[in-house]
């Protein structure tokens, strides 16, 4: 197992190095004057010159790359134009909000998607199955930013049941910072009032974000369960007189969900992508809304840093998923 983890880590290194090269090329090639772009729209000539010096833009290309790698290694992306604080601390401060949101939606997607997919498989080709197919394809076809706005119209503006925006009511002190995840922190400190407030704020963003994931999880579970139900051990269990419910929900499901775990790694990519727009709409103080405001204000340092950070997180998530997959199914470890 240790060998598998080490090899998996080694495999991720070239892609991460490639990401460094890619962002470097993006920064160098795409804007007409990278120093002016980095310094921001209202920068003085002196500020532009300072950026040019810091990034070594008048040096040969290989030296610029060395400087760039050094900056990344020290996690030094410079100061954000908007907040005037280091980009890295901005991102670090906002990361827990995004983690909380994506985890909540992933959890919801799995809790609802797996049973739905199983039922669709058990009753395959029934009306329920057909409806589920249109719903799952529809879930992948819906524009999450639009759906978020529709939810806001109905549940906040019209019915007034849920808060319109933000992660916590303005002006109230948020839960004591332990993990940075409000739902977890409020439970740890036994502040159920705070938990309820945080919960009410996360419902709509998390639900919007979970739609795509829910659809894919349901589809993959359905395919997996259908395949497993053909296996000999299922026929054996049926012949041995096990209750059908037990066969499906315990033995079949356990064997089919393993394959679906690999999907979660891929899902995370879509989740992060949708999170960008969804966070912006709900004013969720995470990395996604940070990326949007950075893009709208042409804050290139922040844009590049977000791209790199998301790439690294994405790589980590995929490694973790592969390792968990290998733990659940030792055959996988042998193929790498």
């Amino acid at each position: 197992m240790t060998r598998f983890i080490l090899r998996r880590l080694l495999l991720a290194l070239p892609a991460l190095f490639g990401l460094l090269v890619l962002t470097f090329i993006m920064l160098r090639v795409l804007p007409s004057d990278p120093s002016a772009a980095l310094a921001g729209e209202n920068a003085t000539p002196e500020q532009i010159a300072a950026v040019r010096k810091a990034y070594g833009f008048d040096e040969p290309l290989w030296k610029q790359f060395v400087i760039y790698v050094g900056q990344v290694a020290r996690a030094d992306f410079g100061n954000s134009i908007i907040s005037n604080r280091p980009v890295v601390s901005d991102i670090a401060w906002r990361l827990p909000a995004t983690i909380e949101l994506t985890f909540a939606s992933l959890l919801f997607a799995a809790l609802v998607g797996i049973p739905l997919g199983t039922m669709a498989a058990v009753w395959h080709n029934s009306p329920f199955d057909h409806v589920m197919r249109v719903v799952t394809v529809g879930g992948l076809a819906i524009a999450s930013f639009w759906f978020a706005i529709i939810l806001q119209i109905v549940f906040s503006m019209d019915l007034g049941w849920l808060p319109l925006r933000s992660r916590y009511p303005d002006g109230l002190p948020p839960p004591t910072n332990i993990t940075g995840l409000y739902l977890v922190d409020s439970l740890l400190t036994l502040r159920f009032d705070q938990f309820w407030l945080s919960f009410k704020h996360i419902i709509m963003p998390a639900f919007t974000l979970s739609l795509g994931g829910l659809a894919s999880i349901a589809r993959f579970t359905r395919a997996g369960v259908l395949e497993t139900m053909q296996k000999d051990f299922v026929h054996y269990a049926e012949a041995a007189g096990y209750a059908r419910k037990r066969i499906i929900w315990v033995y079949v499901l356990r064997n089919s969900v393993v394959a679906a775990t690999t999907q979660i790694g891929l899902l995370f990519g879509t989740l992060i992508s949708s999170a960008v727009a969804v966070e912006a709409i709900f004013d969720w103080p995470g990395v996604g809304s940070y990326a949007v405001s950075a893009i709208l204000t042409s804050d290139y340092k922040a844009v590049l840093a977000v791209t790199l950070v998301v790439g690294v997180i994405y790589a980590i998530v995929n490694i973790v998923v592969d390792v968990v997959h290998a733990m659940l199914d030792p055959r996988v470890a042998e193929t790498l």
Partner: peptide
């Protein structure tokens, strides 16, 4: 290795 939208956002902006 990076979600498509994030990369597309960065490139389009630059």
């Amino acid at each position: 290795a990076v979600p498509q939208l994030i990369l597309a956002l960065a490139i389009a902006q630059l």
